[in-house]
Write a protein that binds this DNA or RNA. Sequence first.
DNA 1: GGGACACTTCGGCCGCCGCCGAAGCGTCCG
DNA 2: CGGACGCTTCGGCGGCGGCCGAAGTGTCCC
Lengths: 245, 245
Amino acid sequence: MDTRRTRGSGPDLAAVARLLADGTRAAFCLALLDGRAWTATELARHVGVAPSTATEHLHALVRGDLLAEERQGRHRYVRLAGPQVAELIEGLGALAPGGGPAPRTLSAAGRRQALAHARTCYDHLAGTVGVAITDAMIERRLLDQDHGLALTPAGADWLAELGVTVPSGTRRPSVRSCLDWTERRPHLAGTVGAALCRHALDTGWVTRVGTTRALVVTGSGRESLQRHLGLADETLVGSGGAAAA
Amino acid sequence: MDTRRTRGSGPDLAAVARLLADGTRAAFCLALLDGRAWTATELARHVGVAPSTATEHLHALVRGDLLAEERQGRHRYVRLAGPQVAELIEGLGALAPGGGPAPRTLSAAGRRQALAHARTCYDHLAGTVGVAITDAMIERRLLDQDHGLALTPAGADWLAELGVTVPSGTRRPSVRSCLDWTERRPHLAGTVGAALCRHALDTGWVTRVGTTRALVVTGSGRESLQRHLGLADETLVGSGGAAAA
DNA sequence: GGGACACTTCGGCCGCCGCCGAAGCGTCCG
DNA sequence: CGGACGCTTCGGCGGCGGCCGAAGTGTCCC
């Protein structure tokens, strides 16, 4: 744990990594991957630590620019500081062990199943459904993956027809592949993935389950995804009941 | 430091992050970002710890799949386990504080200057020269950045003319933007960046400085980069002498 | 075979950091 | 205005983990 001596040149990797090196802080970040703002107590209860402990951790994460905070009355809302942070966390998750099976408790298993089916991953869609959408887009030549993922001209047209507008001129990649830690397969991220997710929520293709990151595909969503991408109903319907909040 | 209780679902972010959360291990990884294999003692001397300490750290990093090792005789060579790891480290570096100025010692300043001018960043080119190449490619419409970076058809032709072959069909993005921690600006990474870097080394456009990641542009390199990309001589010649190994 | 050298294992020391509970603000609401 | 509630600060405890040096193992080379 040596930060005293600054080791020559270069950025202080360890400082950032140390923020994520704690189970509690990592759990906070994982929860915040849903892209929304949580209050301090919500997070504390979510991971099972005392409020005082949560406060300290959140302080550290905010100081380290991983989280942004916003104070409203007696609440303190925190969210991920930006897409860069979300990508970092996903990148870490992709290399991490234990993304695989083996949940401990029954309720954890249910939660896991709901998440595995469909969820938001920061600002885009993930889980079985997210991967299925990505696969279908590739199959229909809306996306191209000769090396790396890219939007084809047909894909751009398709998005326009849906009425999905993708912000342009940003630094952020339009199409990025994000490794799914339940499916262990890549799904669509980047500005296109974000725009598509927003569209899906706005038009009611999917809705959130309680306060979690989990999503369910609505009736109209099933119909639309069937029509636009030819997705089968089986993949769109979660195999279990919705789980505890 | 709580790994006992597995916090619900999801990958164990903290396990990976903890590997990079130590100054010594982080320094190892930063050094290995040159994409080459180092021996254990080289690394130990590089960051100033006892060999026994280095051994333990390397063990942890290998066990955690961040490094790959290869044993040759009485040497143990380690290198980054893959591009994913390199990207993770770069991503961490981009968010880290202190990537900016303020070197402590004189020799560190010289080393820093050499690195700032031109260096390898895992398997592609970085530093002033790397950024200049990227900028020139964008200006000449070989790369397009309406949102995110992409190779244009003209860019593909240009590479073919140079005799640069880019491996296809990999998962890795062909073009990726990598944030430069000296320039604080993006430069070309991904399979195209790697292929171009390999070409530059193979054809002698650039050569390594001693055993560091630093590079110098050779005479023929200057001539080629001038002809193919219109780069000015000033940007290609380092402003300081080559520094200590 | 013997000596140099790269690496490893082990034991012991020390400091950091995460945890909690108690107590202290500030905000909201009746 | 008082009580509930969200958040914060502080002190104290405990354990993890990084550091080193000394001693051991394997490899190379003379």
